[in-house]
Simulated assay, not measured.
Amino acid sequence: MNSQEEVLAGGGINRVVRVGATVRRPAQAWSPRVHQLFEHLQTRGFTGAPRSFGTDPAGRDVFGYLPGEVGHDPWTPEVAGDTALTSAARLLRAYHDATADVAASWRDGWQKPAVEPIEVICHNDPAPYNCVYEGGRAVGLIDFDTAAPGPRSWDLGYAIYRFVPLGSAAGPRVEERLALFFDAYGADDALRRATRAAVVPRLRDLTEHMRTAAAAGDEAFAAHIARGDLDHYLDDIALLSGDGFTAAGG
């Protein structure tokens, strides 16, 4: 390892290092799409995602480093606060809006298949651990490996599961924090209903992805399953399917 390389925390699937003002990570088959996405976001004036700098001599993807605090567990009081929640919703809305004009035409080339109806390019893992915060506000999104076209509700379903949060991690203010998130995103009643209905299917998709990757020999996903992550998601699927959440108003 280069002495100037700093291994970044949270890279559960890939080894990610910081070199000065850049981040380096192993290139993948879908890397060209991610670079294209970052370049497009720059043209649209969205600055809450890394910049693309191509590849380095080692063949790794090179992206700009976003300074700030990443919302790893356990959450700090700032990351757990309502300001962090609402700013994340606004950040995700700005990101979605910046991708709406290319989502349908950039259907292929991603790690994950597109989900119909295509409205935006979903981040597909919007969560505090993929958010960069400054002063308690979400200012950046990172780790776009699983990005792919899909409906807003598909991304928002996972976002509310993580940011509110829902399931076994839920606190006493779930409906209040849901309303704060939806209001900050600017979601109408139809999108709120669709988002609630998307939570369980989105978690089922995650469990299938984990199983498929582990069966194909992915050691990181196999390790996640071994430590109980899969069982955790299955428990939350059962919990959210049985408590009337997806049928509730919003």
Rank of each mutant, 00 (worst) to 15 (best):
E5W: 05
V7N: 12
N14P: 06
V19T: 13
V23L: 04
R24N: 07
R33I: 07
R33A: 05
V34N: 00
Q36L: 09
E39F: 07
Q42D: 13
G45L: 07
G48L: 01
A49G: 01
P50G: 04
D56C: 11
A58C: 10
G59N: 10
G59Q: 09
F63R: 08
G68H: 00
E69V: 00
D73M: 12
A80E: 13
G81S: 15
G81L: 03
T86F: 00
L92R: 00
D97T: 14
G109S: 12
P113M: 15
P113Y: 04
P113E: 09
P113N: 09
P113W: 03
A114N: 09
I118E: 03
V120G: 04
I121P: 01
C122Q: 03
N130R: 02
C131P: 02
G136D: 07
A138K: 00
G140E: 01
D145E: 15
T146P: 03
W154R: 04
Y158Q: 11
G171F: 07
R177K: 09
D183T: 13
D183H: 09
A187Y: 02
R193H: 13
R193V: 13
T195L: 03
A197K: 11
V200T: 08
R202G: 05
L206E: 14
R211A: 15
A215C: 09
A216H: 10
G217E: 02
G217L: 03
D218T: 06
E219K: 11
H224Y: 14
D231K: 15
H232I: 13
Y233R: 13
D235T: 15
D236V: 10
I237W: 06
L240T: 06
S241D: 15
A248M: 09
